[in-house]
Design a protein around this nucleic acid. Structure first.
Length: 479
RNA sequence: UCCCGAAUAGCUCAGUUGGUUAGAGCAUCUGACUGUUAAUCAGAGGGUCACUGGUUCAAGUCCAGUUUCGGGAGCCA
């Protein structure tokens, strides 16, 4: 019975021919006891269902409230009113699910704030904004797989649970089945993890990269796309405790191949969303304009959302070395006017204010910064011949900051072991990883891209909690 | 974790120098109207002013602490 339903997106694109149709959806508004704006999530646009006066009994009429779900059988006709091309002249109207307006927390005419909607995240999909965001998110996710598949990459499912604590990418969530009240202990009082489920201490993954390298050095090119967990006490608009990360890894590749892949990849998935979600992106662009009306002129975006995305597609990314970035900062008017709070000199990690200056003021587009000082980067990055820098690359995006972090990997065993010892990484526990360098080692490279951050960039949303269905952040694990 | 800010009706907000019974728009309810487009018009109900303590003749308003939320910073993707 349900499969005869026509999705509203399809219906709105259909010529009115007087055909009988079945539509189902949720009431957005009910005007004049006569006009129902019905939405089924396939598009932000509603189909107007028209009820003749006296067609329905009063009891049924009263049950057509905002949020109620309906099955309507009727005739698709050319609209008699202005504002829409077609409408459904109702034959029968069946209430699938009532929605008590006194209790329903989502009254759209109240212009609920994003903050309020976060508190009712289980219902916020029913708004235009979140409908658009999550349809775009879907397209981006689909495009990720499409891109890598077309390039011959293998989608590798790296583990969620890991015993490795050497990834160094942040605080980890412990995974255990031991009793919290009375855990087994060693004679010295420490907890005896030999009794734990895996017989050792385990955590949720903070990165699939190391396992990804194992795959890439056999399958050639792989990518991961899965949930990632960081137990950092980060309270920002761009951090989540549980987020989705994409990590490609390529054998026989260097830093430049890596940059080329990252740029092509980002452009590809943006293009896919532009081609497949034009209406949603236009809605989000308009939403951004409305939101920014409240801001002073100088805080508003220079370009609209669509223009920003088109610019990225047409102009690509700026590429500079870390050393060049420092020079630009030192010669900047902002530096000379002492606008920077943090010191600028070779060797520092770039602060948010520095990244923002480079991306938003100087270049006004995404920037790839390469060859960072080795002391501020991870142990596995390939050491350059200058002895000071490593073949790292970060991609910085306007309004978001770091969106990609990657590098060419150190494939020379001695260099890698030496660096691990310098940085106090337990070499013995990493033998499985070092075997890739012992047996047929090859130059290889890869990067990690925070999926929610690219969704932020494409949708123009500004808080990462608004681009994932149910955000996990410090002190917040609702739903 | 640090800095700054906020918390008043279901939602979005106003509330003056501390001073009578705390307001508006929307939502909700009742009625009217009936080709509406965030429908319109008339009326009604709706408040532990986040919590705890303090100052004061008097606190939504001032002070302290707590909680939650937002923005920024750090950590990073």
């Amino acid at each position: 019975m349900f499969n005869k339903r026509v999705k509203i997106k399809k219906l709105l694109a259909t010529e009115a021919t007087g055909q009988e149709v079945i539509v189902m959806g949720w009431v957005r508004t009910f005007r004049n006891n006569q006009f129902i704006a019905l939405n089924d999530g396939s598009t932000n646009n509603n189909i107007q269902v028209v009820i003749e006066l006296g067609q329905l009994d009063d009891a049924t009429l009263k049950r057509i409230t905002t949020g109620a779900s309906l099955k309507v059988t009727g005739t698709l006709i050319e609209s008699l009113g202005k504002g829409q091309k077609v409408e459904v002249k109702a034959g029968t109207v069946e209430i699938l699910g009532d929605c008590d307006p006194e209790k329903y927390p989502l009254q759209l005419k109240n212009r609920p704030s994003l903050e309020y909607l976060r508190e009712i995240a289980h219902l916020r999909f029913r708004t235009n904004t979140f409908g658009a965001v999550f349809r775009v998110r879907h397209s981006l996710a689909h495009a990720v797989h499409k891109f890598f598949h077309e390039k011959g990459f293998v989608y590798l499912h790296t583990p969620i649970i890991t015993a490795s604590d050497a990834e160094g990418a942040g605080e980890m969530f412990r995974v255990t089945t031991l009793s919290m009240d009375n855990p087994p202990r060693n004679t010295d009082g420490s907890i005896d993890f030999k009794e734990d489920f895996f017989g050792k201490s385990t955590n949720l993954t903070v990165s699939g990269q190391l396992e990804g390298e194992l795959g890439a050095t056999a399958l050639g090119e792989i990518y991961t796309f899965g949930p990632t967990f960081r137990a950092e006490n980060s309270n920002t608009t761009r951090h989540l405790a549980e987020f989705w990360m994409i990590e490609p890894e390529m054998a026989f590749s260097d830093l430049e191949d890596n940059m080329n892949l990252a740029e092509e990849f980002i452009q590809y998935i943006i293009r896919f969303a532009m081609d497949n979600n034009r209406e949603d992106l236009e809605f989000l662009a308009q939403r951004l304009v409305e939101e920014e009306k409240a801001l002073p002129q100088d805080k508003r975006s220079e370009f609209g959302l669509i223009e920003k995305l088109e610019f990225v597609l047409n102009n690509g990314f700026e590429r500079i070395t870390y050393t060049e970035a420092i020079d630009i900062l030192l010669n900047s008017p902002a530096y000379k006017k002492k606008k920077f709070q943090y010191e600028v000199k070779w060797g520092i990690d770039l602060q948010s204010e520095h990244e923002r200056y480079l991306v938003e003021k100087h270049f006004k587009k995404p920037v790839i910064v390469t060859n960072y000082p080795k002391d501020i980067k991870a142990f596995y990055m390939r050491q350059n011949d200058d002895g000071k820098t490593v073949a790292a690359m970060d991609i910085l995006a306007p309004g978001i900051g770091e969106i990609v972090g990657g590098s060419q990997r150190e494939e020379r065993l001695e260099r890698l072991e030496q660096r691990m010892r310098e940085m106090h990484i337990p070499v013995e526990e990493m033998n499985w990883f070092l075997d890739t360098r012992r047996f047929g080692s090859v130059p290889h490279a890869g990067f990690g891209l925070g999926f929610e951050r690219i969704v932020l960039f494409v949708t123009g949303m500004t808080n990462i909690r608004d681009v994932i269905p149910f955000a996990r952040t410090p002190k917040n694990c609702e739903f």
